[in-house]
Amino acid sequence: MANELTWQSATNNLWAMREEIWQAFLDTLIMVGISTVVSVVFGTLLGVALFMTSKNQLAENKLFYSILGNVTNLMRAFPFVILMIVIIPATRLLAGTTIGPVAASVALSLAGLFYFARLVEQNLRDVPRGIIEAGQSMGASNWTIISKILLVESRASLILSITTLTISLLSYSAAAGMIGGGGLGDLAIRYGYNRYQNDVMIFMVVLLVLIVIIIQGIGNFLAEKLDKR
């Protein structure tokens, strides 16, 4: 019974690991923060391009849409763990290293970018066609329609999509520990799984669940505030 897990022993063990847990938390914030920003910026550009060049849209181009669509589908279908390994040379070139949260954010950003692009495309498709046609009838340019109509009208949906993206990247960050990315998921695997420390595993799971709840709550709040309906 000496090794039986008790509340006191779990608390003492977690307190002794407080610095390592804090560092893992910071690593997770860095990975998810960088990859979310990159994915949102470039994913929005790609999503807008997909929407604008699709059938019956303002810049319809079947060939361009087909190429972009197929590349996006390919990258979305690519297993994340394999993607991390495949782009190691690019990661070393961009981040100067292949380990650490910044290096891991390269793979996370690439995976998130194409995932978010499809969400953006779908959000823009939900904008009523009549609003776009009204903009056209007033002589608005494509750029004006994109920036003043499409992105504004879909802002509540885009916030929810960013929320979904962030939570997905948080889950991906656990796998990023396999290439030395660190983070809460990596700590849970190294201690909770490999060393059979159930207290660490449970604490990491609870912490990650709380982070997801907070992210979703913030996303829902902002989307509700921005929803004009």
Rank of each mutant, 00 (worst) to 15 (best):
L113W: 12
A95P: 05
T164G: 15
L94Y: 13
F80A: 03
I131Q: 11
R129D: 14
L108V: 09
A90T: 06
F80T: 05
L170F: 04
V102A: 12
L83M: 09
L150K: 14
I145N: 12
G100Y: 10
V102R: 09
S157N: 14
I87W: 08
S141Q: 09
S147T: 14
L124I: 01
R125Q: 10
G96E: 11
G139C: 02
M84E: 03
Q122N: 13
Y172I: 04
P79W: 03
V120L: 03
L165A: 09
W143C: 02
L94P: 09
A156E: 00
T163N: 15
L108W: 12
M138Y: 12
I87T: 04
A175H: 11
E133G: 00
I159L: 13
L160I: 04
K148T: 03
N123R: 08
L124H: 02
I159V: 15
S161R: 07
S161A: 14
F116K: 06
A90K: 02
I149Y: 07
P128M: 11
T166D: 07
T163C: 07
A104C: 06
Y172H: 14
I85M: 11
A103K: 04
I167K: 15
A176C: 07
S173F: 01
I131G: 00
A103M: 08
P101S: 13
N142S: 07
V86E: 02
S161H: 09
L108G: 10
A175G: 11
P101Y: 06
V120S: 09
I146A: 10
S171Q: 13
F114I: 06
L151S: 12
I145Q: 12
N123W: 01
A95Q: 10
S137Q: 09
L83S: 05
N142V: 01
I149S: 13
T166M: 14
L110I: 15
A140P: 00
T163M: 06
S154Q: 07
N123M: 03
A111C: 10
S161T: 09
S137D: 11
W143Y: 07
R125M: 03
L150Q: 14
S109H: 14
S137L: 04
T166I: 03
R92P: 02
L151T: 08
L83W: 01
L160K: 15
A104G: 07
